[in-house]
Design a protein around this nucleic acid. Structure first.
Lengths: 216, 216
DNA sequence: AAATGAAGGGACAGCGTTGTCCCTGTTGAC
DNA sequence: GTCAACAGGGACAACGCTGTCCCTTCATTT
């Protein structure tokens, strides 16, 4: 299912006024869809411009745009409606900082297929959302307060090392490192030996600079 | 000035409940500070935990945390106050989705050194903020509606190619490509020839897949 | 005494990106 | 016609990241 989708959704538009959020959403979409072409707009006039010059398969909207009152329900709905009307052939997702049940129902009436709390989306979860949509025709993620493990980034580590360290830090008390290596090997489709190697190298780097989180 | 700062600010904590925003803030800080150790917390109890176990040089706070009402001024101030009190030796920045003048004054009284609208921060601008702080002891960036060029990302391009294409797309009408190549060469400290090469390769890739923005 | 888990390394091939240099054409302007 | 700008390439070295394999040392366990 999802594979089919990723083939269809080649042209994506993301409408979001916060630059960093837009940047990372563009990035998330880029990784969620194998080959694609993602564009971003920071305000509604830019968005409308782009909708007029290009065809999009998927449009992601944050209704809290400059020039509109983010607290006014009417304004938020107006923004979404304007976009939806100008891209009748696209699928529409809404991403919002403060989600409510009523708002989702209102957007649903406008033809919106997914309603996602910013609070919920985490790195990599756009894949699940697209999967949901492929299976059910919609995807809803309300705000989520489930604790996620604290981040931890040291500028000297390579991406792989970071990843492995982050997994190792969440090791439950009873588990041996070996078991984690095996898990990681399976998860990333590499040798458990390699996972071990990366962990050791990362650990060595952290030790040398004096920064070593308590979980070793 | 700023070089001195980057040496001092090795331990950074970012308190922000939106996972994507936190992730990219961690990343931005990592690139703004040459060698550093950035950690992220998604809620206040996690943050307080981390403040108790580690010493931080810089703490960045989004006052809109789960468990508090983001509309209540009292709640927002309480969050910041709680954090500031628990990290008396750190420098504090506040990042917010909806900024007001009064709020900045209130935070200032608590000892906060910078007040930044999410709307303003863009990729790479944490460097300027740190610079501001190094020079003036503070940095304030209210919400900004200045149009920024629309993003454009194609999954097949390498980072360098992306970068060069994005610069080229903003080429003013009168400027020749050659001039841009020279500028880019100077900016990235590479040969103008190399910049030309990257642009051409990127362009070829985009042509092959049929996606070519109008600016060529 | 032997086995196991863990820390800390070295050697090496493969791969993609980076960056430099150099080569052909085509087009439009002077 | 000549020259510059531009499109579209190829060859190549350097570098870092990835991933595999193999090594030693040391403490704990059995």
């Amino acid at each position: 299912m999802a594979e089919l989708l990723t083939k269809q959704m080649q042209n994506v538009l993301i409408i979001e006024d916060q630059h960093l959020m837009r940047t990372i959403l563009v990035d998330e979409l880029k990784t969620a869809l194998t080959t694609c072409f993602v564009q971003g707009a920071a305000n509604i006039s830019q968005a409308i411009d782009m909708l007029e010059t290009s065809q999009f398969d998927l449009v992601i909207i944050d209704p809290g745009l400059p020039g509109f009152d983010p607290r006014s329900q009417a304004d938020r709905i107006a923004v979404v409606q304007m976009i939806v009307e100008r891209s009748p052939n696209a699928i529409h997702f809404v991403i919002t900082g403060s989600d409510t049940d009523e708002e989702w129902r209102a957007f649903q009436k406008l033809g919106v297929s997914a309603y996602l709390a910013k609070n919920f989306i985490r790195p990599g979860s756009m894949i699940e959302v697209l999967d949901d949509f492929a299976n059910d025709g919609q995807s809803v993620r309300f705000s989520d307060e489930a604790p996620s493990p604290p981040e931890f980034v040291y500028s000297g580590l390579t991406p792989r090392e970071q990843e492995i360290v982050n997994w190792m830090r969440q090791r439950p008390a009873g588990k041996s490192r070996r078991e984690i290596y095996d898990e990681l090997g399976h998860r990333f489709d590499i040798d458990a030996d390699s996972a071990e190697k990366y962990y050791k190298r990362a650990r060595a780097k952290l030790l040398k600079t004096g920064i070593l989180p308590k979980g070793l």
